[in-house]
């Protein structure tokens, strides 16, 4: 089953959708599950690790009885457990910067600076020639009275 505690990535746009339950709601649910001893029924998420669920499943006594029809919501479910958020933490990286192209975005002028300098350098290479050509534009076109 789709895990409502984890964010989902849209395969077409690549954008992330928030989990159906906010972290605050997840924490509330975990608290309630611990109060009534049903931690094994919740999917794993940032507020509830897989180990905790396994431990709870081993110790819990709540299980669906096949003869009781209204216990269908207690049946075991295989939740998707892709560790989307923990990937970076496991690699020992600083979570804030993982997946970013550069550490800080910077100002626009800082980001385009190198390209601007490159173009400037190219323009300055032939600048003397360009100025000379610009200034002599009408000289070249003025009809000479001495021309044959």
């Amino acid at each position: 089953a789709r895990n409502p505690f984890l964010p989902v990535q849209n395969p077409y746009s690549g954008k992330w959708a928030k989990p159906r339950y906010s972290l605050r709601m997840q924490k509330e649910l975990v608290k309630k599950a611990k109060a009534c001893g049903m931690v094994g029924l919740l999917p794993p998420g940032p507020k509830l690790s897989l180990e905790e669920i396994e431990a709870a499943k081993r110790s819990e006594t709540v299980a669906p009885r096949p003869d009781k029809k209204q216990d269908w919501w207690l049946r075991p479910v295989e939740w998707s457990t892709e560790p989307l958020v923990d990937k970076a933490k496991k690699a020992g990286l600083v979570t804030m910067y993982v997946g970013r192209k550069r550490m800080f975005k910077g100002h626009k002028w800082e980001r385009v600076r190198s390209e601007r300098l490159r173009r400037h350098r190219i323009a300055m290479k032939g600048m003397a020639k360009q100025v000379k050509s610009y200034k002599s534009f009408y000289h070249r076109r003025r009809p000479s009275p001495l021309a044959t």
Binding site: R20, K32, L42
Partner: peptide
């Protein structure tokens, strides 16, 4: 209370089971 907690858990399961 435990009854309220169980009710909330049941609601969660019913809303999210396939």
């Amino acid at each position: 209370s435990v009854a309220a907690a169980t009710k909330a858990l049941k609601k969660f399961r019913i809303d999210n089971l396939p």
